[in-house]
Write a protein that binds this DNA or RNA. Structure first.
Length: 422
RNA sequence: GGCAGGUUGCCCGAGUGGCCAAAGGGAGCAGACUGUAAAUCUGCCGGCUCAGCCUACGUUGGUUCGAACCCAACACCUGCCA
């Protein structure tokens, strides 16, 4: 049996680690308690966090015990990022986000059995700590000269960094020490952008308690052009279905580039090496069938949402992108598509609305000006038929089953409206 | 606290009284070509009741026929000095 570390490495999930041989020996020697943290910087975890959750799942499946930390205290400070000082969120907001994130992460690990997962909040030990204790027991282990040398800090010296953000690393390090003491936690992992914070924790445990603990970093996933994978035109891909619909989520993965899709499949899918290698072959021989993209989108949507949501997303996509005339589809199919992609309700009192209004209301364009522009460019569609006249008004013949209209801009942006006759 | 510089559209950045909805670049969008891929070429890229009008160049007020551009106060940012 291959070790879990080899499995993670093959899947491209290891960007960096502390002494690899020592870590491998440690993992092979028996169940290891490990931790990964999520800071509440938004009301939902996002696509980038998914990689950590998947690594946690792999480790738990291999018999190790997960601690999922939600950063109730670190979220109130904010880790330094290159783009500049963060705005502090109120304590109430952070507390609210902690709850939301806690309810999301539980989906990805098991709370059953010998190695059941534990969810903790670092505010529990950071909150009550007196500042003098903090400075004496934690601060004493952090040489400022070393802290200043860290990339994240050095990049900020020009434009400035507050003491608050400068201190972030101490809090995260303290988490590792606390979890080591409370639970015997000996492995922390996180995104490679967290590597500095993670290794600082390893060092603190060594200095404070003389123990050797370990660390892993997952890579930052990029697109073929080198930019971050996980953003779309409309922003971050969230895991909360209310923030990013399962349909949009499915589409996001379906549009993965050929040159990257196998890499993503290794990371996000549970498929075996043989299956993935087969999909890689198919992508090379028959790229237009996009078998790997479909497998990726289906797998991730089922994992994050549900199999039912995955099936609904597939059905909606095949209706919108398929060759079938939308007007030929039965009402039940249209109704399902409309609910999957999300529809606005429009009241038609005396007359039906104009196409510009429908395009704007259904959300495929941000403004009426943009709707006119899209029509002029030939990129606006109603029920898969190109719109040519910006002043056109809907007629009864444009309504599917008397009330539905499917709008589209370009190839990929779809919306829908339901007309309510009064 | 003192001195100097800065604040322009999603981002970077030009513009120092009318020709400015504001150069250029990036990002983004659409069309063509495709496979809901990449690359390439072309067009678009504040809003609207769209051949016209409205809103915008940190905020507020002023000068002027006319201000992103001049003046004043304020706010915030950066650097140097204390």
């Amino acid at each position: 049996m291959t070790s879990v570390l080899d499995e993670l490495t093959w899947r491209g999930l290891v960007a960096n680690s502390t002494d690899e041989d020592a870590l491998r020996a440690h993992l092979d020697a028996g169940p290891v308690t490990f931790y990964v943290g999520f800071d509440p910087t938004a009301p939902s975890i996002h696509f980038g966090n998914l990689v950590q959750l998947i690594v946690a799942r792999h480790l738990q499946d291999a018999g190790h015990k997960p601690i999922i930390l939600v950063g109730g205290s670190t979220g109130m400070i904010g880790d330094p990022k290159d783009s500049g000082e963060r705005t502090l969120n109120s304590k109430e907001t952070v507390a609210e986000w902690v709850d939301k994130i806690r309810s999301q992460v539980v989906r990805y690990v098991s709370f059953e059995g010998d190695n059941a997962a534990v969810v903790v909040n670092n505010l529990d030990w950071t909150g009550p700590m007196p500042v003098l204790d903090f400075l004496r027991t934690i601060g004493k282990h952090f040489p400022v000269n070393r802290m200043l040398a860290r990339d994240v800090v050095r990049n900020r010296l020009e434009e400035g960094i507050s003491y608050t953000e400068f201190s972030y690393v101490l809090l995260q390090s303290m988490d590792y020490l606390e979890l080591f003491r409370r639970y015997g936690c000996t492995l922390q992992f996180g995104g490679s952008d967290q590597w500095g914070n993670i290794t600082a924790g390893v060092e603190l445990v060594r200095r404070a308690d003389g123990a050797r603990v370990h660390a892993l970093a997952t890579p930052l996933l990029t697109k073929a052009d080198g930019t971050k994978f996980g953003k779309t035109e409309s922003g971050t891909v969230w895991l909360d279905p209310l923030m990013t619909s399962p349909y949009a989520f499915h589409q996001f993965f379906l549009n993965a580039e050929d040159s990257k899709v196998i890499e993503y499949l290794k990371v996000f899918s549970r498929r075996s090496r043989a299956e993935i290698e087969d999909l890689a072959r198919q992508t090379e021989l028959d790229p237009h069938r996009r078998a790997a993209q479909k497998a990726l989108a289906d797998d991730v949507t089922a994992l994050v949402h549900s199999e039912a949501e995955r099936d609904a997303a597939i059905a909606a996509a095949s209706a919108v992108f398929g060759r079938a005339e939308l007007s030929d589809l039965p009402e039940s199919t249209i109704a399902q598509v409309v609910s999957e992609i999300g529809a606005v309700e429009l009241a038609a009192d005396t007359s039906l609305p104009g196409v510009v209004d429908v395009l704007e209301a259904s959300g495929v364009v941000p403004s009426r000006s943009a709707a006119r522009r899209a029509i002029a460019e030939g990129g606006a569609y109603l029920n898969n038929l190109r719109v040519t006249d910006p002043d056109a008004v809907l007629s009864e013949a444009d309504l599917l089953h008397g009330r539905y209209v499917i709008t589209r801009r370009g190839k990929k942006t779809v919306g829908a409206a339901v007309i309510r006759h009064s």
